[in-house]
Write a protein that binds this DNA or RNA. Structure first.
Lengths: 243, 243
DNA sequence: CGTGAAATTGAGTGTCGTCAAAACCAGTGG
DNA sequence: CCACTGGTTTTGACGACACTCAATTTCACG
């Protein structure tokens, strides 16, 4: 299912897009130079501070974005304030819900985030013109659906200890996609606070903290400055994730 | 976002498809009579008994299907046997995971199910020829993603009582999509056993049963023959679903 | 009826949530 | 350099909700 992309001389490609990851691994790879030029005219780059809300619940969405760096958390809330993170978006994910005027979820910068944003209308016109763009979007959506279903298993059937281990594994793999299970050691910055991790795993802050210290006292991981995690034995971490 | 479908005289449409719901509300609506004829040649209808496995975990998928009636449950399991239902498919949902040779989930008939199946290759050729087909698929996938995320909130943040109430509401709405919250009474057959409901909600059979009897003793619902549920006060059920 | 499976009910336990206090950390200003 | 502040994280004591194990009842089907 690999299609060879015609490699035109890069003069036709907007400067903005030249080295953009979204053009290589993201949805923009679907577009030819002319289309890129058209879209780039209406696009704009932003950097966003952690904690800032990108899309509010029940707000009308007037733009779509590509995540260029950082982590965006997608959340849903119950009326009494209980919150659940229902997805995390990393570069070069496409951010936004096509074919719906109202968003049913919140999007918030979990870390510092940089975005490339497009007006709603431009993207939708482009989608009508380019089936390849819809194709990429379909692929990303299917991947997100797979991820969501994996997390449903975690949320519904795993213990607190397994949830935290699974979370650490997921982050480790996302930071370093080439990570193979035989290496025993990795190291990374947690993109989420304890509160976020709790909201992601359907737990309380205290339980997350307790499970992390348990992993630490069992010397499966080390933690420095609350955020920096070193996994000493990836295999032992995996064995605690409930498969 | 309503597109007017050209209503060709029905002589061009295969008999098999004439009154098929998948042509009206499902993905087949994307196809013109010629394409329908092509696809119908390779399609076949099946009826399947409850409990029969349609797609096994880690099996190679060689066909796609439309659900014509009944309910299909999508499940995922942990190595020690714990199971989680990650999706339910009703008519006229499209069943199958495009662009992946291996399925990571199990599909099993929850009730008696009738399917219209197509060889993998036919569907994939059709997808290449018809952007409209991919468009419909994208829409269904986005809807499934929305549903999955809704259930993540239920799994992660709701109490057992709220989970069961949410489940009953979801089924009621699916049986009768026109159901408005002001009507106080509906009645339907549960398409799932208690064990299935437990796997869907991340609970045990016993807890599901206890919550159902509580709803019954509080006269929010009535239950006949284990399967037939009558909701006496939809509003009261909704108020217990945690919003 | 009689049988086996599914569902309900009960008693006891454990995991995780709640509430509260202490420790830690980063940043600010004396 | 140190004290102070606000926020985050950790730790502890306790309790409740949901799980486990077990017995009973109900249901579907021969």
């Amino acid at each position: 299912m690999v299609t060879v992309r015609q490699d035109v001389h890069s003069t036709g490609i907007p400067v903005l897009c030249q080295s953009c990851e979204a053009r290589h691994r993201g949805v923009c790879g679907a577009l030819d130079p002319d289309q890129l030029v058209g879209l780039a005219k209406t696009s704009s780059k932003h950097t966003i501070e952690p904690g800032v809300e990108l899309i509010g619940d029940a707000e009308t969405v007037d733009s779509y974005s590509n995540v260029l760096s950082g982590v965006v958390k997608l959340t849903k809330s119950l009326s009494d304030g209980r919150q659940q993170i229902v997805g995390l978006q990393f570069a070069p994910d496409f951010l936004g819900r096509p074919f719906k005027v109202e968003s049913a979820i919140n999007a918030e910068a979990a870390t510092a985030v940089s975005l490339c944003s497009f007006p709603r209308a431009s993207v939708e016109r482009m989608m009508r013109e380019s089936p390849e763009l819809e194709h990429r979007l379909l692929k990303q959506t299917l991947n997100e659906l797979d991820e969501a279903r994996d997390w449903m298993v975690t949320l519904g059937r795993k213990t607190a200890a397994e949830k935290v281990a699974s979370f650490l594994l997921m982050i480790a793999r996302n930071i370093d996609p080439t990570l193979d299970p035989n290496t025993n050691s990795t190291s990374f910055e947690l993109p989420l606070t304890r509160a976020d991790i709790a909201d992601f795993l359907g737990l309380t802050i205290e339980t997350v903290s307790r499970q992390l210290t348990r992993l630490r006292t069992d010397s499966v991981i080390r933690i420095d400055n609350n955020r920096h995690v070193t996994v000493d034995s990836l295999a032992r971490l995996a064995s605690r994730s409930g498969a």
